[in-house]
Nucleic acid binder design. Structure first.
Lengths: 342, 342
DNA sequence: ACGTCCGGCTAAATCGATGTAGCATTTTTT
DNA sequence: AAAAAATGCTACATCGATTTAGCCGGACGT
């Protein structure tokens, strides 16, 4: 099965490949190909179910109609759902998605960028890792369309689509305060990236605004790359040491899941002895007993926004003046459930 | 940023592109290129960080080092986790993954195959939809390496890697019987595909072997493409009508999740008034109160097996006799938790 | 009647890597 | 010393689509 090429059509129509190319690319008028020939070619192309070879086209035009999607972990519910949205949206524009997970590891991320580069993807959607700013700037100076997601580099002027993480954490914390909790802890990831920094900042700001003294021993920052058991152990150690803690805010979905598991194993009753708020909604949070309050991200909106921004960039004519970098910040929703109500 | 081409290296080394190509493809010996020239080229290539343009190479060789992964729904925990494993394994062999979700819709699946085809993927990993057998056979007759996952076509002799769904359902049902449940219902997807058929067969066989009369009104088959609310409504209607039901087996992960939600909304106490077993493990099943018994799939093993089979096929020399189709059936594990114990 | 213009189309170069066929030159064989 | 073989490398065609430059013949103007 060789696949139909433009030559096959040309032969059948008794014209040159050039003519076929013009017609099939909608340049019949512009290139003054007669209606007759034009229609004939169209018909033959349809009959033979001609599909241009994307490799050949890509080689010639430099456009592969493929975008690279780099996420933290495709097995994570948030990123998987996001990937689905991105795939659907990209498809609407005729783009396919090549994806990869960084595991929040800069070397893996660099490797992915490398691979995507020599696969000639047209644009990038990147959940950046810690020290990826240099590579991002390199891509920018090479005029590669690119959108950052979930986090960004404050000192790099790039497109990005992120959540208002500050507000998410602030609202969650304020909510806990309003429910009467006084000794509120946070378990987050030891990362200086914006998404984590903003969550921590939102947390401390909410405490401050509500005149709750900040207590360093109520903040736990864990490395990203622990396995579930280690997360559980660390959280247990932390909560045991945090004397008098009456509520915890878990700053990521997997921390929340680990937290629930740990707290239960400690015999504390969630929603009674200890308040709990998680991040990102999840079936578990909805159906847990008690149900878990969480900061929910508008994943569909995020995905649509990402692709929209990227497409604008991709359709940007080469010579035209660069459009300003779009920096989209979407609002979280605090879903209040039983784990934080008293 | 044009990217370094083989010509740039040739120019710098003062040799022809052909020579460079030979050297960089490890054919220096075979093509009798001198050690000197060989080393010089290697050094220059390294210095310039040369990466072959995959489009050009693909166009010429017909190999893109890309595989297409078609899943039912990348946002589903099972498929997302599987995708991650596949990505990792494929990467070890230097392959990238292009993916797409079918939503169990044959037309979408056909569209995906079409796109993957004209993107010239080297091989396919496919979760087939209902009437995809024709397309599968077409791919086979075009000698495209291909592995089916999760389900297969009994009348098509192809590679596949699936779960022993029959055993999974049988064990789950037998376990319920052994726990003293007598009126056991099943909620499954109205699909004649193997994975669903085998689960239903395993269920009925277990009942029969345990001398429990089969009752048609205890079987509910729901369409795949309902939203969560409709699933809940349908399940509620079914369970209300199934007089005396004392246990339910939900044959997919999302049905299990919907089932838990529904049963709770009906005020029935899971694990007491009604036994429950789900399919595919999930954080929710582990941490739910009561915890949910389920049939767990060895996702890592499945992913590895898929890629292994596919790679064997991809590395198959063109002329060699076709190797037999590998049909891998992996064993499920019944994880017994509180929802099914009395 | 001769130059110009235009409509309608095509030859050929190009993208980058690959691989066949083959050209010089040196070395070995007889 | 001439023929054969080995050595070391390169020219060129190729994959399929795109695109620039331009050919050819008829209409039109003067």
């Amino acid at each position: 099965m060789k696949g139909i090429s433009i030559k096959d059509i040309a032969k059948q129509a008794g014209v040159s490949p050039t003519t076929v190319s013009f017609v099939l690319n909608g340049k019949a008028k512009e290139k003054r190909i007669s209606e007759q020939v034009s229609k004939k070619i169209q018909k033959i192309a349809t009959r033979l179910k001609y599909k241009p070879n994307q490799l050949a086209r890509g080689l010639r035009t430099g456009k592969t109609k493929t975008i690279g999607l780099i996420v933290e972990d495709i097995a994570n519910n948030f990123f998987a759902t996001l990937a689905k949205v991105v795939e659907d949206e990209a498809d609407k524009h005729g783009y396919k998605v090549l994806y990869g997970s960084t595991e929040d590891n800069t070397e893996k991320a660099k490797g992915l960028l490398e691979v995507l580069k020599y696969r000639q993807v047209d644009g990038y959607i990147i959940t950046p890792t810690k020290n990826l700013d240099k590579e991002i700037e390199l891509l920018q100076s090479a005029a590669k369309p690119l959108v950052l997601v979930d986090r960004y580099f404050p000192h790099v002027n790039s497109h990005y689509v992120v959540l208002n993480n500050y507000k998410g954490a602030y609202d969650a914390t304020a909510h806990l305060v309003e429910q009467g909790y006084k000794k509120i802890a946070i378990v987050t990831i030891a990362s200086d990236q914006t998404q984590m920094k903003d969550r921590l900042d939102g947390f401390t700001a909410a405490l401050k605004d509500h005149k709750i003294p900040f207590n360093k021993s109520f903040v736990k920052r864990l490395p990203f790359d622990l396995d579930r058991e280690s997360f559980n152990n660390e959280i247990k150690k932390f909560l045991t040491a945090a004397k008098g803690v009456d509520a915890v805010f878990f700053a990521t979905n997997y921390l929340g899941i680990a937290g629930i598991e740990t707290i239960r194993s400690m015999g504390w009753e969630i929603g009674k002895e200890i308040g709990l708020v998680g991040f990102d909604d999840h079936d578990l949070f909805r159906l847990h007993s008690p149900s878990i309050t969480c900061v929910s991200q508008p994943i569909a909106a995020i995905g649509k926004s990402i692709v929209e921004v990227l497409m604008k960039e991709l359709n940007h004519p080469a010579g035209a003046p660069a459009s300003p970098q779009q920096q989209v910040v979407l609002e979280p929703e605090l879903i209040i459930r039983a784990s934080s109500r008293r």
